[in-house]
Nucleic acid binder design. Sequence first.
DNA 1: GCATATTTGTCCGTATGTATA
DNA 2: CTATACATACGGACAAATATG
Lengths: 236, 236
Amino acid sequence: MSNHSASTVDAIEALHGDRHLLERSGTAERVAAILRQRITEGAFLPGTRLSEPPISAALGVSRNTLREAFQLLAHERLAVHELNRGVFVRELTADDICDLYAVRRLVECGALRRADELVDVDLAGVELAVADGLSAAEAEEWRAMGMASIRFHQAVADLAASERVSSTMRQVLAETRLFFVLAGNTRAFFEPYLARHQRILRHLERGRFDVAEQALDRYLRDAEKQLLLAYRRRRS
Amino acid sequence: MSNHSASTVDAIEALHGDRHLLERSGTAERVAAILRQRITEGAFLPGTRLSEPPISAALGVSRNTLREAFQLLAHERLAVHELNRGVFVRELTADDICDLYAVRRLVECGALRRADELVDVDLAGVELAVADGLSAAEAEEWRAMGMASIRFHQAVADLAASERVSSTMRQVLAETRLFFVLAGNTRAFFEPYLARHQRILRHLERGRFDVAEQALDRYLRDAEKQLLLAYRRRRS
DNA sequence: GCATATTTGTCCGTATGTATA
DNA sequence: CTATACATACGGACAAATATG
């Protein structure tokens, strides 16, 4: 037997999905990556102004390149740009939550429908994401589990085997991360979804894409409700 | 020899006439708007390098601002950015056509499905786009008719009443315009779709969103086939 | 409501690295 | 291999808009 386990092979295989991260190597993209992480970690809270002078000084880049990075974040909707006022970390409204989940239902369920009419569908990415979610749950690493959940949904969208569908999904999921800081990256928020990930995967493995689609649709509607609840609770 | 053909030089020269569009706020976006139009008109052909020095000189903006505009175009996929090489007008492959139409089926049909579960759906936008298409056809303005067709599909996506769905559709349709220059903005290309726009609208007006969705799906599959044909013909 | 300080928007000059003839 | 053209990134400058006391 080879010293590469099945999951290792899968992990290497799944790296193909990360190739889009390597294509960019400009400074602006690297700066954007740093800020992106800080924002999704909650270090820069929603509404915070991202001021040019201190940040460019702190990161050691010029204002010009920093502004390019800001533009990338604004395009991802993680930040908003107000003319002559600067860029701010996006503040979410209840409407944003509804809108975002409407798009996710449209794209993710649509991806499954599209995958259903393809001849060759590779479920390795989905299986890996579910396995990672289980490991994270056993280790009680709730933040890692949130990331595994993100990967699950990205993998589902990737089943459509369309570069543009995957790219749209990446954009939408980047925004979804903003909700996680809202929900606090807690166990109570993520754990209930583990079983549903597994159930959807089982449907897919049996080739029942239509059943999987319905399960995914219900899943997303429930997640939306729960997030709206957390949102209102925080507001009061 | 430079990779700027004589017609490319002419296209850059003609930019001097666009300087009057630069008067309002958001210079980078205004520059992007000009280049966007020039690209979709076919003034800058696919594969053309968008060189910083001549364009910034012709439009009277700095290279910094121009680079911001390039980034916007790259994000819309109208241009591609290659590190340390510059930005080029996107060259389309047959795979791009298939991928693009797969996304359009997913988004547009998904939007109709979403609209079906909304209580209040306003068809005014769709009706207007169809009417404009008819006027353009009677006046035999085939380029105007292409624009009306774009508006029709955007209006269909807007029925989902989701800011993000509409935004995704705008992105996809911007790319679709690249195909029009490929198909040559001709009567033969656009005219057959007029009747189908009307038929889809009639289904919507009768509240038969499911029937409209099927008609739209067939419409998009046919359009894809025709475009692939035009693509291969041009290649030979 | 006004004067001041800060910040953004935009431009320029330049040094360095990279690709191509 | 060299030379040229170009993109990348920096730092400084100034006007205009905005925020602050």
